[in-house]
Design a binder for these strands. Structure first.
Length: 555
DNA sequence: ATAAGCACGC
DNA sequence: GACGTACGTGCTTATA
């Protein structure tokens, strides 16, 4: 490998490095841990090769620090978000364009496989140089596949935005969570005792086997219980709900499940996740881990904080603005995936309904049931809503029949009516599957690809699953791109205007910000405008914005 | 260690 | 008769 010889690195080593691209690779003592410390940095510039500078940033030559901050020098690396985050904790702001080899790989392979991790597994010094070489290989591939917009305009600018959001974290009321934890623990104890009394024995409610035996062998509440594909008794909430009137223990089990999930998943985990230095929770956002281009959130996952059940909603109240001078702001896209579907399919009736500002589910119900908007009942609207969303997930007539609790033929008729009214959607679904069959992949609006290996599989289930992916991925992926672009633009604008408000969280179609109270009007306007205009759709884009002292109030 | 089943979000 | 609408993270038990 073309690394330079081993004499002591000096500031002089960087003199003469090209001013365009530098490979960088951080050396870290506890990778993947939030307490990770920088133990060195490798800097690679051709043709000089790669040099390693040991120790924390304070020990590095000033030329190294200067090149990291130099907006004229592009940084090439592998998983650059982590590097940028760690450097920012040391007070170093990385400037200049980015080229992340891991993300380039993902875009080029379209999720088919993870390319051999030659850039991640080696020591920092080799990694920096390998990344630099890889860039030359990947750049023309990105261009050839028309992925430069997705890469340079979306994914690369998003990296420092995500790093800033992770660094910022969100304030959480620990005492409130601990109080809720105590209350819930008592409830759970009572529920367990009640189940034991009804069963006449000690039941291990965490054991699916024991719950199955109790319900279907001891109490025989169902003649022919449904089994999972491995032969266990199915005991999921839907299954239990169907027999909830057969025996009082069933509701107790459902209650236990809901409460233990909240307790263990949130009320015990979130207090532990509060950083003792900042007093805030700092999640990790992954932008390279999903098939469609969505983000994910982990350690802890802040994209699945409860909201639907009354008990779960209490947890949201514990997510607070950073101080009394701030408010939490939540901005939601309204029905973004349906708008994207309308746009991608160019279905005229759907577009017209969105342009008219109609309630889309009521409009759908009126058309499918052959009535007027005024005569649409809540039940009709609920069914139409389920179909609207089912369509974007590629749902079948069977699936719809199950969901709506109607016969298969009735469901088929419903879907027939639906497509009669929205012929553009039928055409879209046919065309996208045809495209996937022919090319082996689908694309989002900006050209991001997802390869679908099984689109021509002989196994019908595998093939059907691939067809559902073909229908849904362009929709979900385009919506994901839209909010990513909005995030980049919002972050840039907050910086440019020297505002104190900050992006905190992204939950797929929602952005959460800490908003400095005097900036409320300006930031509300800024967020709404950037979310609406991130991508140009064939339909208007609507946003709901709320503010409050906690996340529930804001939502 | 890994898989299965379940539950939370969008 | 099973299956049954996409994308995730993370908990627990059961199995190896």
């Amino acid at each position: 490998m073309n690394t330079s010889n081993g004499h002591q690195p000096t500031a002089k080593a960087l003199v003469g490095f090209p001013r365009a691209n530098l490979g960088i690779g951080l050396d870290v003592n506890h990778p993947g841990n939030s307490s990770a410390q920088i133990t060195g940095i490798a800097i690679a510039g051709l043709p000089n090769g790669s040099r390693f500078f040991p120790g924390p940033p304070a020990c590095w030559p000033k030329e190294v620090l200067a090149s990291l901050s130099d907006p004229e020098i592009r940084k090439v690396g592998y998983g650059l978000k982590r590097d940028i985050l760690l450097l920012s904790k040391c007070g170093i702001e990385v400037h200049g364009g980015l080229f992340d080899v891991a993300i380039a790989n993902t875009l080029i392979t379209g999720g088919r496989h993870r390319v051999q991790d030659e850039c991640s597994a080696l020591a920092a010094k080799e990694r920096a140089l390998t990344c630099l070489h890889k860039q030359d290989e990947l750049c023309p591939q990105l261009q050839g596949l028309k992925l430069t917009k997705s890469f340079h305009d979306v994914e690369m600018p998003l990296i420092p935005v995500l790093a800033a959001m992770e660094r910022e974290g969100i304030r959480v009321d620990k005492d409130s969570l601990l109080t809720q934890r105590g209350t819930l623990a008592n409830f759970i104890e009572a529920t367990q005792a009640s189940v034991n009394a009804l069963a006449g024995r000690g039941v291990d409610l965490d054991s699916l086997q024991d719950v199955g035996k109790l319900l279907f062998e001891q109490l025989r509440i169902n003649d022919k219980p449904r089994k999972t594909r491995t032969g266990q008794y199915a005991t999921d909430a839907d299954t239990l709900q169907a027999v909830v009137n057969k025996h009082p223990v069933v509701q107790q089990i459902l209650d236990y499940r809901e409460r233990i999930t909240l307790l263990r998943g949130y009320l015990e985990q979130l207090p532990e996740a509060i950083n003792s230095t900042t007093g805030r929770i700092h999640t990790t956002f992954e932008s390279n881990d999903t098939a469609t281009g969505r983000l994910s959130s982990k350690n802890p996952n802040l994209q699945n904080i409860p909201i639907r059940s009354a008990l779960g909603r209490e947890i949201r109240k514990a997510f607070l603005s950073k101080s009394a001078d701030y408010l939490l702001l939540s901005a939601d896209y309204s029905q973004i995936e349906l708008r994207v579907l309308a746009s991608l399919s160019r279905e005229e009736s759907l577009i017209a309904a969105f342009l008219a500002g109609d309630d889309i589910h009521s409009t759908t119900a009126a058309r499918v049931f052959g009535t007027t908007l005024e005569k649409v009942t809540a039940e009709m609207r609920a069914k139409a809503k389920m179909v609207n969303y089912g369509i974007s997930y590629g749902m079948s007539a069977d699936g719809l029949a199950h969901r709506l609790g109607i016969s298969r033929t009735a469901a088929a008729e419903f879907i027939d009516q639906y497509f009669e009214n929205f012929p553009g959607l039928r055409r879209y679904m046919r065309d996208i599957i045809k495209f996937a069959r022919k090319n082996g992949f689908i694309q989002t609006m900006t050209g991001r690809r997802r390869y679908l290996a099984e689109i021509n599989a002989s196994n019908i289930n595998a093939r059907k699953a691939a067809q559902r992916n073909a229908i849904n991925s362009p929709i979900q992926g385009t919506a994901a791109e839209m909010i990513k672009l909005a995030m980049v633009n919002i972050h840039r604008e907050l910086k440019a205007r020297h505002l104190r408000s900050r992006l905190l969280l992204q939950v797929h179609d929602e952005l959460v910000l800490d908003v400095y109270r005097p900036e409320k009007m300006e930031v509300t306007e800024l967020v709404a405008e950037n979310m609406k205009t991130a991508l140009r759709l064939e339909v208007p884009v609507a946003i709901f914005i709320g503010t409050g002292s906690n996340w529930l109030e804001a939502h």
